[in-house]
């Protein structure tokens, strides 16, 4: 091969890089998929963007794409929202304290659900993963079926139980009890799936790692705390976030148990405001809606990296 031929050959190679046969269609597929997903999510994306823009505008209704031409940003709706001026023509319907109270209520329900779910499902998941007890398989299947039941279907029974148990308590404790009840019943909808998720994380830790620690001189509690828990940390983090969001987003349980007691969360508050479409002032409701979205956005950014973070080395299965 003379130098000229070599040069030509090299150029040919550069123009048509050698690609493994099976990567060609896969790459094309990726592009097609990316376009399809992009197109499919475009309407939703536009809706969210309009929602956020509306919360910074002073239009009478919901902002539309045609309004964007003469869009003037303002933070007035946010101020109105935090001051409780949800219907500007009607003056202050809420005090700032009440608005903050609604946000706090939402946080209490979300955090409560998160704590209950994490505590129960890490323990139950560990038991399912490690202990071979009688009826283990049947119980695991039952847990899976429980997950399949929609929460709405259970609400009549849950409500009956609530009313029945309420009679046993003094009326002064009813508000607190309603909170606890919502947290427990909402958490129990999340727990089945969470148990399975945690079981999966525990299953990935070989028995030998625990044995090694016991032989090294650690007690079972210490092994659990210093070896097992750190290894399932990504799982616990993901779980607590999912459970938090479930509590944060819950509408039906909050609506059934808290709203009759005049306790609002962001979900029921927003629903209340848009119920009367004639009087609703959209920029303020949009501000509440945007606030409602924030945890979801934050948590999705954080979970992605958490779920990918796994320890793989040092324990071949």
């Amino acid at each position: 091969m003379n130098p000229l031929q070599r040069l030509r050959a090299r150029r040919r190679e550069r123009e048509e890089p050698l690609i493994d046969v099976e990567t060609i269609p896969r790459r094309r597929l990726t592009i097609v998929l990316a376009i399809a997903v992009g197109l499919a999510s475009l309407p939703m994306l536009i809706t969210y963007i309009l929602l956020i823009l509306t919360s910074f505008s002073n239009t009478a209704g919901m902002l539309t794409i045609s309004d964007l031409a003469h869009y003037v940003p303002t933070i007035q709706p946010w101020i109105d929202f935090l001051e409780g001026k949800v219907e500007p023509t009607a003056g202050h319907l809420y005090t700032t304290m009440e608005i903050l109270g609604i946000i706090l209520n939402t946080l209490i329900v979300a955090a409560g659900v998160s704590i209950v779910v994490v505590l129960t499902s890490t323990m139950a998941g560990y038991a399912f993963s490690r202990i071979r007890f009688r009826g283990r398989k049947a119980l695991m299947q039952l847990v899976m079926i429980l997950h399949a039941f929609p929460g709405v279907a259970l609400i009549i029974a849950v409500y009956a139980l609530y009313v029945w148990s309420l009679a046993a308590l003094p009326p002064s404790a009813w508000n607190t009890y309603a909170f606890i009840y919502v947290i427990l019943s909402r958490a129990s909808l999340e727990i089945p799936m969470s148990i399975w998720l945690m079981k999966g994380f525990f299953d990935k830790i070989p028995w030998e790692v625990e044995w090694a620690a016991i032989v090294d001189g650690a007690s079972r509690i210490r092994v659990w705390r210093e070896i097992v828990l750190p290894l399932v940390k990504p799982g616990i983090a993901a779980l607590s976030i999912f459970a938090f969001l479930a509590g944060w987003e819950d509408f039906i349980y909050v609506w059934v148990f808290l709203k009759p007691r005049d306790i609002y969360t962001l979900a029921t508050f927003i629903e209340e405001q848009v119920r009367n479409l004639e009087t609703a002032y959209f920029p303020v409701v949009a501000a509440a809606g945007t606030l409602y979205l924030i945890p979801t956005i934050i948590f999705f950014i954080t979970t992605q990296h958490l779920l990918l973070e796994t320890y793989a080395g040092g324990m071949k299965a």
Binding site: P206, E208, V209, W211, A212, A213, I214, V215, D216, G217, A218, S219, I227, P230, L231, Y311, A312, G313, G314, M315, K316, A317
Partner: peptide
């Protein structure tokens, strides 16, 4: 006697190191 009172050293096939 439980394992932690026996003073044995144990090496596993899969090493069982503490990954974290």
């Amino acid at each position: 006697l439980p394992p932690n009172k026996r003073n044995v050293g144990l090496v596993f096939q899969n090493y069982a190191l503490y990954p974290h």
